[in-house]
Every structure is written in C-alpha cells, then in structure tokens.
C-alpha cells in the first residue's frame, strides 16, 4: 500500500516534473529562438553597415583572426622566408586584412572559431564518405539499363540559423551527387533530387545535424539533452 502510494506520489511528482520540464524547454527554446532572432536581425544590420556596425573590440578581433589566416595563406603561397619577402607579406596581408576584415568573419562569433575549424575538419571525412557512396549510387542509376531515376523537387525548412551554416549545408548537398540545392529562401531549402533514395537520405536530416554541430547551432538539442529527466525517472520506476 505504502509502496503503491509511494509510486503514485512518485508518478505525481514525475508528471509535475515532466510538465515543468516541458515548460522549461518551451521557455528556453523561446528564449534561444528570441535571441537567435534578434541576433540574425543584428547580423543583417551588421552586414548592411559593414564598416560601422561592429564594435571596435570585435572588429579588432576579426582583424587579428583575418590577419593570421591570410598570413598563413601567404606563407603557403610564397615559400620564401627571407626577411624581404616576409616583410612584403606582412605589408600585403596587413593591407588586405585592413580592407576586408569585415568580410571573412562577418557573421561568426569570434570566440568559437577554433572549435568550428576543429569540427569542420572532422566533418570533412564524413562528407567525403557521403560523396563516395552517393557517387556509387548515381553510377548505378546511370549504368543500369532501366534508368530507375525519379527526379523530384523537395522543400524543407531548416533549423540552421546563420548564413555560413546554410551555405555549408547547401554546398554539401550540391557536392553530393544526385542532389542539387536550387534556392534558399528565408531558411527554406529547395532541393532537386535525382531519385527517391537520395531524397530519403537527405530527409533523415543527418547532414543538417552534423552541420549544426559544426557551427555550434544545435542549441535546442543540447537543452533537451540536459533537461531530459524522463530517463532518470524511468530508472527509478524500474527500481521500484
């Protein structure tokens, strides 16, 4: 009896907690969404007023980051490391970074850049693998005598937020044989797919998740992961 009561009480509290969790998730999601909305609005503004929009600090950080990247690029190209050429490179890189520091890192939060590059490098092999498998599939489609193609245009709303992740996703889709991004309009992708299989592959959303991971935009997912109390209570119930 006590046990049943206890279980009932636990169930009650579980339901309450579940509700609270749902509310919390909703609240947090709304908050994230709001911030991201304001952020995208802000970023549009920044993009429009390239030189004036950003504050001095982030401008300077952007400048330094651009400078380092470009100087590495210069060293890669030049391959001459005597003083004369290095100083030439320094001057050139300085000029270009001064002119274009607002272009390269326009919509990226500066602190994340190292993690993003790390994750992007990890993302590359997976993309390669996808491309190869898709290649095989398309080769099969092309070579099989019946030509079992089923061209279709599919649309989906993406959960990604920033320009750069949209473009990465779009280019990844286009790079994978069989699918081509035709247009992006306010977060809605219009994709042309060659057959049902590639369309299904795209529909699972794995690529989107991975791109979101690369650009640290999986905020919604992380919050759900953290607040996922259901698992804990399930354990408790089983124990009881």
């Amino acid at each position: 009896m006590e046990v049943t009561l206890l279980i009932q009480a636990a169930d009650e509290s579980f339901r309450l907690l579940e509700k609270a969790r749902g509310q919390a998730v909703d609240l947090l999601n709304t908050a994230v969404k709001l911030t991201s909305d304001t952020r995208s609005v802000e970023e549009r503004k920044l993009q429009t007023f390239l030189s004036s929009g950003q504050d001095a600090k982030s401008g300077f950080q952007n400048f330094i980051a651009t400078f380092v990247m470009l100087f590495a690029f210069w060293a890669l190209l030049s391959g001459k490391f005597d003083l004369f050429h290095l100083s030439l490179g320094f001057i050139c890189t300085f000029v270009i970074s001064y002119l274009s520091h607002d272009l390269l890192f326009a919509n990226v939060r500066v602190g994340d850049i190292r993690v993003i590059i790390q994750r992007f490098i990890i993302y590359m092999p997976w993309l390669m693998y996808q491309i190869i498998t898709a290649n095989v599939h398309v080769a099969y489609l092309a070579l099989s005598p019946k030509m079992p193609i089923d061209p279709q245009v599919m649309r989906f709303k993406t959960k990604l937020e920033s320009d750069i992740s949209w473009v990465t996703l779009a280019n990844s889709i286009t790079l994978t044989p069989g699918t081509i991004t035709m247009d992006i309009h306010e977060g809605e992708f219009v994709v042309h797919a060659l057959s049902q299989k590639v369309a299904d592959d795209l529909d699972t959303g794995e690529m989107e998740d991975r791109v979101a991971h690369v650009f640290m935009e999986a905020d919604h997912i992380y919050i759900q992961d953290v607040l996922d109390v259901a698992r804990i209570f399930g354990e408790m119930r089983r124990a009881a």
């Binding site: 190209l77 000029v95 270009i96 970074s97 390269l104």
Partner: peptide, 9 residues
C-alpha cells in the same frame, strides 16, 4: 580576401 591576397602575391 583570399583572392585579393593571391593577387598581391
């Protein structure tokens, strides 16, 4: 920026 740097190179 990369195109510009390449041009200067």
């Amino acid at each position: 920026p990369f195109i510009q740097l390449y041009a200067l190179y």
